[in-house]
Amino acid sequence: MLKIENLHAAVDGKPILKGLSLEIAPGEVHAIMGPNGSGKSTLSYVLAGREGYEVTEGSATFAGQDLLAMEPEERAVLGVFLAFQAPVELPGVGNANFLRTALNALRRAKGEAELDAMQFLKLARTRMKTLGMTDEMLKRSVNVGFSGGEKKRNEMLQMSMLQPRLALLDETDSGLDIDALKLVADAVNALRGPDFSALVITHYQRLLTHIVPDRVHVLAGGVIVRSGGPELAQELEASGYAGVQDGTPSKRSFDGSPVAA
């Protein structure tokens, strides 16, 4: 489904990804772990098409289509969803209006009938209930005045409404307490199925006890340095990222604190 080959990308002329290859089959959930600055967020932005992330070499295709040649909204319509690490505020843009517009843009592209306000509200309310969100959050401007946890929930609400085929979760777990973490995991797990793939980007292992990945990759220095099954996440938890960083072993544990020699 998602196929990345020898991907090189630079930001402000500075190379970040240096030949990353990765393949996610339909129905699979992969996790990407790695120390800060390893290029995790860059990967998600490159896949979603953010301006300023320049691909210098390599390819990325999704469902056989060249992702890198598409506009961000075309990728979204194709089914690529990025859950932002820092969801963006849109003052004055009502959350419901935003979500309905996005949903209908998608439905339009798929040739489906658009939802009217009532149909939309009904659907949104069901999903919000699952996520422990109140109606009031639909009335507020998108992410404006939302707490960190509320923003992440709002991202999950969008994901569950838009029903993507590929979800990129960029450190969605950061700053969440355990209850919120479970809600995020539930939202992802609810989508799991033969037509859904996900790439879970995380610094920590704890999210992966709730979203059990099919494969775990370690990203360091812009390339994948190790891959393995779910057990790799546990191993990293125990030993840290020492020895995985860009071929030059670092004396730092996975949470960033120095490791006693």
Partner: peptide, 10 residues
């Protein structure tokens, strides 16, 4: 970018 990522044309 946030809006476009959710499928809205520019």
């Amino acid at each position: 970018f946030y809006c476009r990522q959710r499928g809205l044309p520019e």
